[in-house]
Simulated scan of single mutants.
Amino acid sequence: MTSTRDQRVIADEAIAPQRETPFDLKAYLTARQVQVEAALDASVPMSYPETVYEAMRYSLLAGGKRLRPILCLATCELAGGTSEMAMPTACALEMIHTMSLIHDDLPAMDNDDYRRGKLTNHKVYGEDVAILAGDGLLAYSFEYIASQTRNVPAERVLQVVTQVARAVGAAGLVGGQVVDLESEGRSDVSIETLNYIHTHKTAALLEASVVSGAVLAGASAELQQSLSRYAQNIGLAFQIVDDILDITATQEELGKSVGKDLQAQKVTYPSLWGIEESQRQAAQLIESAKAELDATNPNAQPLLAIADYIVARTH
């Protein structure tokens, strides 16, 4: 038999405002990573010639945050789509990102021995195969978007292919990398040049990841523009934090060589601003990014939490 006091407690709980459950980013990222890893594994099956497929899979399946595919899936759902319609593009974006890392690590570029705690591709397969593995992933990424995307109008798929191609070409990642190489060893690199490098080398592919998910779902031009600004801001913040970690983190924490920027005499955000001001600028960019989202929309919670994660990460 329920007492009068118990009845009051039950009644009070019934009329009290329900507390919102905080968004669990760790659980969200873990679940998404499982989805993405399975999709990536299936996306590039072994074939002949085995050497190049093995090299492609070696770097593609080497782990990592899978931030770009997760952002693509999250924005597709934010705009009313499904993860299924965005997964081929999500995988393709990770193929392109992996290509950029394989090529970035080559002796002609950053000359790195380790990536994600493992030997870099060219250290395992040689420079020749590493270059070809990167080329193979880049070409296959566009084939994969075009051939595997389901239940999406063809004009949206074409728009995504165009967006991703622009992000990876001379107007995006490639252009940023060229200016980065040209700036090595120079002491007169301005903040404008540094922003150009990383807006193109880092933020462009993040922006394509975010916007392509929304495009696939048929998002309005207004929402696409807001998401584009969100992505540009988190992209620059991501690079600022990377520059800080290159100074403050250990090789074990990062899973790659540290202090490479200093050795290569690269201008970085901390070298121009110092660590404290760099941290402040990154935090400001994250706040600007979050301001582009509707915080009352439950589907915006992953993007809001990812923005905070970018500035707080330690690896």
Rank of each mutant, 00 (worst) to 15 (best):
V129G: 01
A130E: 13
A130Y: 08
I131H: 10
I131V: 14
L132T: 02
A133V: 00
A133P: 13
G134Y: 06
G134S: 03
G134E: 00
G134N: 02
D135F: 00
G136S: 04
L138R: 08
L138N: 14
L138I: 02
A139N: 07
A139S: 14
S141D: 07
S141P: 09
F142G: 00
E143R: 06
Y144H: 12
A146H: 13
S147P: 09
S147L: 03
S147A: 13
Q148M: 01
N151D: 15
V152I: 06
A154F: 15
E155A: 02
E155Q: 11
E155N: 02
R156C: 00
V157P: 15
L158K: 12
L158C: 05
Q159L: 02
Q159C: 05
T162K: 15
T162L: 04
Q163C: 10
Q163D: 15
V164Q: 08
A165R: 07
A167Q: 11
A167F: 12
V168T: 15
G169C: 06
A170V: 13
L173V: 13
L173M: 15
G175F: 09
G176H: 12
G176Q: 05
Q177G: 05
Q177N: 06
V179W: 07
V179S: 15
D180W: 13
D180H: 09
L181A: 13
E182S: 09
E182D: 08
E184A: 01
R186Y: 08
S187E: 15
S187Y: 10
S187P: 11
D188G: 10
S190P: 15
T193A: 03
T193L: 06
L194N: 03
L194V: 08
L194S: 03
L194D: 11
N195V: 01
I197E: 08
I197M: 04
T199S: 15
H200R: 04
H200E: 02
H200I: 00
K201F: 10
K201R: 09
T202K: 08
T202H: 06
A203V: 06
A204E: 11
A204V: 02
L205Y: 12
L205V: 03
E207K: 09
A208V: 06
A208Y: 14
V210M: 01
V210I: 07
V211H: 14
S212C: 05
S212A: 03
A214H: 13
V215C: 04
V215I: 15
L216F: 06
L216R: 07
A217V: 05
G218L: 03
A219Q: 10
A219G: 06
A219H: 12
S220W: 11
S220M: 02
E222W: 02
L223F: 08
Q224Y: 04
Q225D: 12
L227K: 02
S228E: 14
S228R: 14
